[in-house]
Amino acid sequence: MKDIEHLLRVAAIFLVAIALFVAVRSVVKPESYGKLGRYRAAALDEIKALPVRYAGQQECGPCHKTQAREKAGSSHRGISCESCHGALAAHAAAPKTAKALKPEESSMRGFCLRCHEAAVSKPAKFPTVEGGKHNPDMACSMCHKPHSPKI
């Protein structure tokens, strides 16, 4: 009968350990942990709140009707405005304070040729030119309208 004392002692140690674990866990565990899965649910809200830099194509049209209409009828229709003009969410929100950029005439050839320079790796259907031979020394925009490039 005295042997039961050993068991009780072990049980006591276990109980203390479990109590300690529960206590520590309640302090250390992030509040939203486990709400959605084995992670901190609040992290999702932090990620969702990250800033947006690209406004998206649909935002530009209402203010820039001419360019939007012109582009919609051209072979550049699939290209979003910000693919060429860069991230403009700030501009779309406050056009007076946040100026938008457009490719400069001095860098125009490099800008257009990034997409249009002939190369074996490009899909055969894609319209390309050899930059060194296609009217060199002239900005592409002298002949092609960027928003409607067909001549």
Binding site: I47, K48, A49, L50, P51, V52, R53, Y54, G56, Q57, H76, G78, I79, S80, E82, S83, A87, C115
Partner: peptide
């Protein structure tokens, strides 16, 4: 993810011509 949850496509999809 921050764009998807706002109803926008990803930045790379937006930029792909």
């Amino acid at each position: 993810y921050h764009r998807l949850r706002r109803g926008k496509v990803t930045a790379c999809v937006e930029a792909c011509p």
